[in-house]
Computed example of a mutant assay.
Amino acid sequence: MVVDLDWENLGFAYHKLPFRYVSYFKDGKWDDGELTENASITLSESSPALHYGQQAFEGLKAYRTKDGSIQLFRPDKNAERLQKTAERLLMEKVPTDKFVEACKAVVKANADYVPPYGTGGTLYLRPLLIGVGDVIGVHPASEYIFTVFAMPVGSYFKGGLTPTNFIVSEDFDRAAPHGTGAAKVGGNYAASLLPGKKAKEAGFSDVIYLDPATHSKIEEVGAANFFGITANNEFVTPLSPSILPSITKYSLLELAEKRLGLTPVEGDVPIDDLDRFVEAGACGTAAVISPIGGIEYRGKLHVFYSETEVGPMTKKLYDELVGIQFGDIEAPEGWIVKVDQ
C-alpha cells in the first residue's frame, strides 16, 4: 500500500489510521485485547474518567531505520511509568508484556504509515488507560479500557532543533506539593493550558514551572523536562517528587555520562543560579530536545548559549539519542524493540 502524505511536513497532528488496539478489564481480569478499525470509544456517562479524572496516558514513538525495519525505543519504560501512574490513581495496571505487545501490534498493523527513513518523521503512539463503568461516587472504577492508537508526526516544535525562549511562571503551578505531578494524568496538562496560552501571547514558547512549595527551583518546561549544561561539563536536571519522570531525560542522563563524558547531576536547580549553565534545553518524547535560547525571569532575559544557534553539547546529545532511535548508532542493551513486518 502506498500512502500519499507529505512526510517531511507532517507537523504534530492527529491522523485517523486504519487500526488501533483495545482491551477491557472487567470482572477482575483483562481480556486478550484486539485490533479494531473503530476509532470511537463508547463508555458510560457516569465513568470516573469523565467526572473524577481517573485516566492516564503515555507517549512513545516507532522509528523507520535505514534498512527499512521498524523499531520502538524503550517501550518497557513507558509501561512501567503507566503502572506507576495507575498506582497513584488506584487504577488497574496494564502488564508490561501486554503493553509492549499492544504497541507492536498497532505499529505492525499501520506499518505503511511509519514515515520513511530520512524524513525526520516518526509514528507516534498514544496508549490510554481510562476508568469506566457505572460509578457516581468518588471511588475507583471497577472496569477499565486500555487502548493504543497511532499517527505519523513530524517535529513537535516548528523549526525543529532551533532555540526558543521561555518565561518563568510565578502565578501558576504545574502540580501541587505531594500531588500528581509525577503521574502522567490528563489533569496536569489541562491545568497547563492557560499559563501556556499566556506565555505564547507574550512571545514565548511556553512557561518554566517552579517547585510548588517554595517557588525557588526549576521543575519543568511546559510539558517537558529541563536540563542544563555547565562550563565544567555537568549535565544537570531537576529532581523532585512532583516532576514527571521523563524516559527521554533518563536516557540523556545515561548517554551524557557514558557516551559524551559529561557528569550527570540530578538535584535542585535554583532559579537564581542560571549563570552556571552555558547551554539549556527541554526534553521529552514529543519534543525530543528543544534548545532553550533564554529564560525570562522577573523582567530579565537570561540567555544561555545563543538565541539563534544550538549549543555544541546539546547538538551532540540530540545526535546521539536520535541516532540510536533511528538505528544509526548502536543502542545500549535493551533500549530497542524490533517490530516484525
Rank of each mutant, 00 (worst) to 15 (best):
Val3Ile: 14
Glu8Lys: 15
Leu10Gln: 07
Phe12Glu: 08
Phe12Lys: 03
Tyr14Val: 14
Pro18His: 12
Pro18Ile: 08
Val22Gln: 15
Asp27Glu: 15
Asp32Tyr: 08
Asp32Glu: 15
Gly33Cys: 08
Glu34Thr: 04
Glu34Ile: 05
Leu35Met: 10
Ala39Gln: 11
Leu43Lys: 13
Ser47Asn: 11
Asp67Leu: 08
Gly68Lys: 06
Ile70Gln: 04
Gln71Ile: 02
Asp76Gln: 13
Lys77Met: 10
Lys77Cys: 10
Leu82Cys: 13
Leu90Pro: 01
Thr96Ile: 13
Lys98Cys: 03
Lys98His: 14
Val106His: 02
Val107Tyr: 00
Lys108Met: 10
Asp112Ser: 14
Val114His: 02
Pro115Glu: 12
Gly121Ser: 09
Leu128Tyr: 15
Gly133Pro: 04
Pro140Val: 11
Pro140Phe: 07
Glu143Met: 09
Tyr144Trp: 14
Ile145Gln: 12
Thr147Trp: 07
Val148Tyr: 02
Val148Phe: 01
Ala150Val: 09
Asn165Gly: 03
Ile167Asn: 00
Phe172Pro: 02
Phe172Glu: 07
Gly181Cys: 09
Gly181Ile: 13
Ala182His: 15
Asn188Ala: 08
Leu193Asp: 02
Pro195Gln: 08
Lys198Asp: 04
Lys198Tyr: 09
Glu201Pro: 01
Ala202Asp: 11
Phe204Glu: 00
Asp211Ile: 09
Ala213His: 13
His215Asn: 12
Lys217Gln: 14
Ile218Phe: 04
Gly222Asn: 01
Asn225Gly: 10
Thr230Asn: 14
Phe235Asp: 06
Leu239Asp: 15
Pro241Glu: 14
Leu244Glu: 06
Leu244Phe: 08
Pro245Asp: 10
Leu252Lys: 02
Leu253Arg: 12
Glu254Ile: 03
Ala256Asn: 06
Gly261Val: 08
Val265Tyr: 12
Phe277Gly: 03
Gly281Asn: 04
Gly281Arg: 00
Cys283Val: 08
Ala286Lys: 05
Ile289Pro: 01
Ile292Trp: 07
Gly294Glu: 00
Tyr297Phe: 13
Arg298Lys: 15
Ser306Ile: 11
Glu309Pro: 04
Thr314Glu: 03
Asp328Ala: 12
Asp328Arg: 12
Ile329Glu: 04
Glu330Asp: 09
Pro332Ala: 08
Glu333Gly: 05
Trp335Ile: 00
Ile336Tyr: 01
Val337Tyr: 11
Val339Leu: 09
